[in-house]
């Protein structure tokens, strides 16, 4: 049996050598300091996981991962970077669609675990890709879009964009959001990070555990790189859009996320591509547990 392949990209060769040592016994390790070369490798060879640096002179990591998406969609994408600015983080979500955003210096066992997960998921994605049976889905239910935002503007804009094509629900507080989530699954969530005084990070993280095919678009004026990285890893948010909202961008994102929701509903194997990392903050972990419990009780009550 051939070993899975991982591709390492960094402008510092010493990083490449060091990572190769970490991985060579379990994987075929390909490495390069040249992002263009990386894209060629992705096109020509079957690569399970790409791990890229962000700051490289020729090309930014987020850009390389965007090209990687086109060249080899099944390959899982990981960013490994020494410093994260807000722009890089946003680009890694919206363009790179990264599986994980990791920071240097890294912890060997953690990176190994992330890569092992990613390799398994890529393996399954390749399998789906090669069968490529598009089961024409049965009559689809009307998609359901949940807006979690204190301000009405977001809900209004979503209404204007989607009109009657979707069921649109607006929750201005956490309680209401929970009730709506209990009623029925949601295709796309458009959420600010603050609902009044509530930080909704834990809700987004919980939604993804509950319904991996639900796509989260975060719209916010909030600006904290480390929180964003946490949401990438632990909530696998699909898009991040700063406020004030650009109507065109939101429209584009909504369309592609509704589309992705359908693809993932049809091909549940692919849902793993957005598998979330464990919640790191103990308080959020507790909140998420409570939230799941409450949702369960609410759902069973509605079912009865």
């Amino acid at each position: 049996m051939t070993k899975p392949t991982i591709l390492l990209v960094d402008d510092e060769e010493r990083i490449l050598r060091s990572l190769r040592m970490l991985f060579f016994s379990n994987y075929t390790v390909r490495m390069t300091t040249d992002p263009h070369e990386a894209v060629r490798i992705l096109r020509d060879e079957k690569v399970h996981v790409i791990i890229s640096d962000q700051r490289m002179p020729v090309m930014l990591g987020a850009e390389l991962l965007r090209l990687a998406r086109e060249a080899s969609p099944a390959t899982m994408r990981i960013l490994l970077t020494g410093y994260s600015d807000m722009d890089a983080s946003i680009a890694s979500v919206n363009e790179g669609e990264v599986f994980r955003y990791l920071l240097k210096p890294w912890v060997g066992d953690e990176v190994k675990q992330v890569v092992a997960d990613a390799v398994a998921i890529a393996e399954a994605s390749f399998a789906v890709q090669s069968h490529a049976v598009k089961t024409p889905s049965a009559a689809r239910q009307k998609p359901r879009v949940l807006i979690m935002d204190h301000e009405e503007t977001t809900a209004k804009v979503v209404h204007e964009i989607l009109g009657g094509r979707c069921e649109i629900v607006w929750a201005a507080d956490a309680q209401h959001a929970m009730e709506e989530l209990a009623k029925q699954d949601v295709s796309v969530v458009v959420s600010d990070l603050m609902l009044g005084d509530t930080n909704v990070g834990y809700i987004l993280k919980t939604i993804k555990q509950l319904n991996p095919q639900t796509q989260c678009i975060v719209v916010t004026s909030f600006n904290d790189t480390s929180r964003l990285i946490e949401l990438i890893n632990q909530a696998q948010i699909s898009r991040y859009l700063p406020k004030p909202l650009s109507r065109n961008m939101l429209a584009r994102y909504l369309e592609s996320m509704l589309e992705r929701f359908h693809v993932l509903s049809d091909q549940p194997v692919l849902q793993n591509r957005q598998k979330v990392a464990e919640i790191s903050d103990p308080q959020e972990k507790r909140q998420s547990g409570n939230f799941l419990g409450l949702l369960g009780r609410l759902r069973s009550r509605i079912a009865n």
Partner: peptide, 21 residues
């Protein structure tokens, strides 16, 4: 700080990994 953090974290990344290995 952005520049320096990157400059330091890069060598720190491989040094730490190499020593651990």
């Amino acid at each position: 700080v952005a520049g320096v953090a990157h400059e330091i974290n890069t060598p720190l990344g491989y040094v730490q990994n190499n020593v651990a290995m």
